[in-house]
Amino acid sequence: MTSVLEAHGLGKRYGRRWALRECSIDIPAGHVVGLVGPNGAGKTTLLKLASGQLEPTTGGITVLGGRPAGGRAQLAKVGFVAQDTPVYAGLSVADHLRLGARLNLRWDAAMARERIARLGLAPAQRAGKLSGGQRAQLALTLGLAKRPELLILDEPVASLDPLARREFMQGLMEATVEHEFSVVLSSHLVSDLERVCDFLIVIVDSRVQVAGETDKLLATHYRLTGPRRDPDRLPADQHVISASHTERQSTYVIRTDAPIHDPAWTVTGLSLEDLVLAYMDRRTVENRRVALEVRR
């Protein structure tokens, strides 16, 4: 299968601060990819690099086999719905569709019109007067009607109320069935992505922590609970993601491809949310340790 996004040693620095570093990922086509991490973790930077809004400081990135924003053909293949779904406040809904029709090589005018009608948006309505949910739907319509092979969405539902959130996701997911394109969307909430994604990338502190198909991630991560034990006494093929200890008990979240035979452990699976939290937690634990060492 071909890759929609391939990055090797990708990094982006603003001044002295790295927004993203040492990012190496390979996303196969045909997935709905969730990019999850806390605010400021580097999600937007990665998405902007993928759409060619930013140039990498180090490493390289190819999207659908081409250089991001490297010409009209590449632009036609990749759709992008930016954070807070910006639209031209002074232009009407119909103007936006016209904009899309005029600025794109491929433009599915029928689909755009049909979507707008189904959403109940008046074509003469000024985009500035739309509600947040309607604006997001308009931006999504622009992204969909250019019929991209990859649609990138940066926190598309972060500022929407639950109903608008659901309607947005319904529209997006329906379109993926109808038109078969890959999707990469980011959120700081796992709950937004849990149902829609079949591929997950967790990014914390400007580094990619884990990336893979959600089924595989869920099948290789476990929570072990049992009598207190040091991490170095765990088998070598069990990678500790997070750990917590009381005087008598240890709880580990581990990643392993092998079955767990140790009878001392109570082994449970993880929900996607728990899995992501474990990776986020790992970073904070490490940071805390560093901070303590510095203080000494």
Partner: peptide, 14 residues
């Protein structure tokens, strides 16, 4: 599949 996806907002693969 399309109906289920549109109604539940879930991944088609599910």
């Amino acid at each position: 599949v399309k109906e289920v996806v549109a109604q539940l907002a879930i991944n088609a693969n599910t």
